[in-house]
């Protein structure tokens, strides 16, 4: 190695270490697995509720035209289902990440984690609000696709502050969301794949890559 190459590689190392040390690395693969499992449970409940079908093309009619009792019942079910999935997924997600952080001797609530959450939640909250506004207009047709796309963007954004692998998951979610726009009415299926299957696969891969040793 010439002197110049030596200096150049020094600079590269400095840059890479500065980057690596400012990322939250305790993100647990098991968190991903459990988030996926609960998402699948939620999707299963909806699948049963929709009379064992992934197709719910009449949802829009249900929200727009059905009598208020049917409509309220439908909305109540959707909110209960979504909220329980969210709460269970978040609590188990936090638990396994907390456990991994503890095992590594890291504090979970450190700067890297705060930075990760803030950058994850900016696109996520924007997407959530956008979805709610669509719902307010009774536009549910592209809602599943929108949630997947915004979630994917949030992951890509967050990947700068944690394991780089999160970026790949984000890109897959965006891709899946775009495909979902073509298949209006099959949102439940795409949700099950995006929030369920992809999380389980990602989490399992991460678990074997970083944790099982």
């Amino acid at each position: 190695m010439t002197q110049k190459e030596q200096h150049l590689s020094d600079l590269k190392q400095i840059r890479s270490l500065m980057e690596k040390s400012t990322r939250f690395l305790s993100l647990s693969g098991l968190s991903g697995v459990f988030i996926g499992v609960f998402a699948l449970f939620g999707a299963m409940a909806a699948y049963v509720y929709f009379d064992y079908s992934f197709y719910y093309g009449e949802t829009q009619d249900m929200i727009y035209f059905a009598d208020s009792q049917t409509r309220n019942q439908f909305l109540l079910f959707v909110f209960t289902d979504a909220l329980s999935v969210l709460l269970l997924a978040l609590s188990f997600g936090f638990y396994f990440t907390w456990r991994k952080a503890k095992r590594r001797g890291d504090k979970i609530w450190d700067n890297t984690f705060k930075r990760l959450l803030i950058n994850l939640f900016i696109p996520l909250v924007a997407g959530g609000l956008f979805g709610l506004i669509l719902l307010y207009h009774g536009e549910v047709a592209i809602l599943p696709a929108i949630t997947l796309i915004f979630y994917g963007l949030a992951l890509v954004n967050a990947s700068h502050y944690t394991l780089n692998d999160v970026r790949a998951l984000g890109i897959l979610e965006i891709f899946l969301g775009l495909i979902a726009v073509f298949f209006i009415g099959y949102g439940l299926f795409f949700w099950a794949v995006g929030f369920g299957v992809l999380h389980i696969i990602y989490g399992t891969l991460m678990y074997f890559k970083y944790e099982r040793n």
Binding site: I14, L17, M18, K20, R104, D106
Partner: peptide, 26 residues
């Protein structure tokens, strides 16, 4: 030394960093 250079790189962009974190990063 590569290692001393690495230690300082990490400390430049972080507040307190513990031994284990340094060991894993380097």
């Amino acid at each position: 030394s590569r290692i001393r250079l690495g230690i300082m790189s990490i400390l430049m962009v972080n507040d307190w960093v513990d031994f284990l974190a340094l060991k894993e990063l380097l």
